[in-house]
Design a protein around this nucleic acid. Sequence first.
DNA 1: CAAACGATTTCC
DNA 2: GAAATCGTTTGT
Length: 226
Amino acid sequence: MLGNYNPTGDYSTQAVIMERVIPTEWFDRSAVSVAPDLIGCTLVRQLPDGTQLRGMIVETEAYQEGDPACHAYRKQTKRNQIMFGGPGYVYVYLIYGMYHCVNVVTDRIGAPSAVLIRALELAPATLSAISLKPKEKPIRAAAGPGKLCLAMQISLDLYGTKLESGQAMWIEHRSIDWQAKLDIGTIELTQTTRIGLTQGVDLPWRWYVKGCKAVSVFEKLPLVGS
DNA sequence: CAAACGATTTCC
DNA sequence: GAAATCGTTTGT
């Protein structure tokens, strides 16, 4: 129970779980605002059999209006339509015909935008529950948007689902301990340009936990604050 | 209808 | 450095 933010003083298990789940309204702002705030939060995937897979978000990227790299830059299509709706929904797409990438839709209706979740630090129990590739280091099991979806069993069938407690997926707030470390500078965030793009390459809309071994790419040096 | 392309990953 | 692989998007 330690480390759980619980302003109600109600420590029943169900109440604590509800407190920690991020509500829809929290995502109702620009992707650039949400993306850094998602670092340190926990992505929870609940499988049909009730099994929960968990990982702390350690890397994100923002995609929003006026951004040529955003999938909603040109017009509304079948693939990107979820981004045009309200916040707090899951946007999943197939990339290179073989991997999936998962996003959280942000901002109000009519402001197409989303935050790409690029890397997780998987919880010990989750590492035990899944099967890792033969030579894979556990810390790297969800280091990258495609690997993350593979580890968390995220695919197109989650497209358009809402991030809510008890659903197929939801997100929980940073722990008090993690937030405290960020506040005193024990943990730092780095802001850089995004990965793998041909357009919008100079926008510094990628964030990650400085020094974290679970991040997708290290060599890209900080553009801000170095 | 045909062709190019990609917010990736892995292996040579 | 290049292949794998396929739905979406864009062009003819």
